[in-house]
Design a protein around this nucleic acid. Structure first.
Length: 558
RNA sequence: GUGCCCGUAGCUCAGCUGGAUAGAGCGUUUGACUACGAAUCAAAAGGUCGGGGGUUCGAAUCCCUCCGGGCACGCCA
């Protein structure tokens, strides 16, 4: 268990006991400990006295004084306690816990911060799920980075995570894709065939058609219509998916399951789902169509499930898919969608509820748009016009590390302005390098110290240092911050906020650089050198873990 | 028109689920390399947290309202 977690429990227990001795009732769990912004307010503070003031009808400061007076400093692990402001209790920890933090990290190494808050519960994260009708673009990259980092984090704190990509390989857009490929194919054979009106005009389909002509000649042209349609459809899906998979792999994103929409039709799950809804009384027929009475479950209006021509709307297989997710028994289901799908959330939640499942087990996280800027100008992206800025281009231009880092740096629900020039600039303006540089700097130091520890277990050896020599502000700030990591990761994961990990490591790098400038390491007297090397090593491990959680590399040199 | 998201320093954004004097990076200004990587550090200036009301010991945070921006509102997917 993380050191600070123990420190906090001990403190809470002592405060609750002190309150008890003062004739107050205070549950340990109800004591909210916070880290004050300013150092002079101590390591931890609590507003417990202010909370109690109302129930006991006494001034908060008097209550705080009473608790402080009754507090067993030794049992609480404190140097001192102060009452401040309107009735805050400010706690000043005995500094020996700082050494415990370093020892814990050197023991845990690349598992530092790993936890079991998830308790093995099963979570499914569905993300990207772009239609296989073209290359992935920058918006998908954001969803990919977000979903992937989220999955890594949830896994890290003990959830059993399944990453899933839902392939829309049935329905109208596949039809349009097939017709588009057909047209491009004939064009590639030199025939003047017009593109379908709803076709996909992307370069990638042209390229696929040309490749097919190169590799397979006119064999599709010789087929009869129906046969050709089937073959081209398979070829198109296969081609598009291969491309998508390739882009994602390069972006360091892998899925446990690629779930096919078509499989829901083939297994009969789609029609079964409509039957199920009907049995439960959520379906009616009107104007020649089959409707879902979603408006009585919070949706704006009722939705069509089966169109007048007998075919299903997009919604219906999607409901079937979500039914399938719940049938697989996930404790929690997380969908990562683009902001433009937000109108869809209520519909799916209504459907989940109508099927008898708990809609609160489903969370839909909407990623806001990404606007690209190059040379200060907005770069428009449009899949249809062929001017799309694809995910592949983004990776070509700024690299995977910078792309992931910038996309994850901001909360998923805020609009991002992505400055391409900044992301590639190898300068102090670029936060990716700032963090990576801290890691590379540490590697360089440890390389130089290597000969002192030849043949020894570096971490075990360093952990034996006497950490009481670390008394500088810069050292203690840094160690304290290292100690926050496990809790920070847990909170970031539970609140589905990878950007908090980014902020954490950025702050860690900042504190490290600051320490580096004010505290010499190599060549100091042996006891100080050893303790500082241990600290530096602890920072290295923590940076590695943090960077890995967001899928960014921790380079040994730059 | 209806619904969702957003509005915090010149710019881009944090703000730990209600706490103390609202933070960071960039940009601007000033300073620091004859020892561990200057892709770095130290410091300064910069704010009526969109406006107005409310809830309370206490609000950037919760509620109402207005203003401004984005997105969505198909028997498309």
């Amino acid at each position: 268990m993380a050191i600070l977690h123990e420190v906090q429990s001990r403190l809470r227990r002592a405060v609750a006991e002190a309150a008890g001795r003062s004739g107050l009732t205070l549950q340990e769990e109800a004591i909210h400990l916070e880290v004050p912004r300013e150092k002079r307010y101590g390591d931890y503070a609590t507003n417990a006295a202010m909370q109690l003031a109302k129930t006991f009808r006494r001034p908060p400061r008097a209550l705080a004084e009473a608790i402080a007076g009754a507090l067993d400093l030794e049992a609480a692990g404190l140097d001192k306690v102060e009452v401040a402001g309107p009735g805050f209790l400010n706690f000043f920890l005995k500094p020996d816990y700082l050494g415990d933090i370093i020892r814990e990290i050197l023991r845990e190494k690349d598992r530092y911060g790993q936890g079991n808050a998830g308790g093995g519960r099963r979570v499914q994260v569905e993300f990207v799920s772009a239609n296989p009708t073209g290359r992935l673009h920058v918006g998908h990259a954001r969803g990919a980075a977000y979903g992937d980092a989220l999955s890594r984090m949830l896994q890290w704190i003990g959830y059993d995570v399944t990453r899933e990509y839902y392939i829309n390989d049935a329905g109208n857009q596949v039809h349009n894709l097939t017709k588009s490929l057909e047209a491009r194919y004939f064009q590639a054979l030199g025939q003047d065939v017009p593109m379908p009106e709803d076709g996909y005009f992307g370069r990638d389909i042209v390229e696929l058609a040309e490749r097919m002509v190169r590799e397979e000649g006119d064999r599709y042209a010789r087929m009869d219509g129906g046969e050709r349609y089937e073959a081209l459809r398979e070829r198109a899906l296969e081609g598009m998916l291969a491309q998508i998979r390739e882009d994602l792999e390069r972006f360091r994103v892998r899925f446990d399951l690629w779930f096919s929409e078509r499989s829901l039709y083939e297994s009969g799950a789609v029609s079964e789902t409509v039957d199920r809804l009907r049995e439960r009384g959520w379906v009616y027929e009107a104007e020649g169509a089959v409707w879902f009475r979603s408006s009585s479950l919070g949706d704006d209006k009722d939705r069509v499930l089966v169109k007048g021509d007998g075919s299903y709307t997009y919604l219906t297989p999607d409901i079937a898919y979500h039914r399938n997710k719940f049938e697989r028994g996930f404790d929690r289901i997380i969908n990562v969608w683009g902001q433009d799908h937000h109108g869809y959330v209520q519909r799916i939640k209504a459907a989940v509820q109508a099927l008898g499942y708990d809609p609160d087990r489903l969370t839909v996280q909407l990623c806001q748009l990404v606007a690209l800027y190059r040379h200060g100008e907005l770069v428009r992206m449009s899949k249809r016009t062929g001017n799309a800025v694809t995910m592949a281009e983004l990776m070509d231009e700024v690299g995977v590390d910078a792309a992931r880092y910038f996309l994850l740096r901001r909360s998923h629900d805020t609009h991002i302005d992505f400055d391409l020039d900044l992301a590639v600039s190898q300068s102090n303006e670029n936060p990716v390098y700032y963090v990576q540089y801290a890691h590379a700097r540490i590697c360089s130091m440890l390389r130089q110290a290597e000969d002192r520890f030849r043949g020894e277990d570096l971490d075990a050896r360093l952990a034996q240092s006497d950490f009481r020599v670390l008394v500088q502000d810069a050292e203690r700030d840094l160690i304290r911050w290292l100690g926050f990591f496990p809790q920070e990761v847990e909170e970031a994961a539970e609140s589905l906020s990878p950007h908090r990990v980014v902020h954490y490591i950025e702050e860690l790098a900042k504190k490290f650089h600051s320490f580096y400038t004010s505290c010499r390491v190599l060549g100091e007297e042996p006891a100080v050198e050893a303790a500082r090397l241990a600290l530096v090593r602890a920072v290295q491990w923590t940076l590695r873990v943090g960077l890995d959680l967001i899928g960014v590399a921790a380079p040994e040199q730059m």
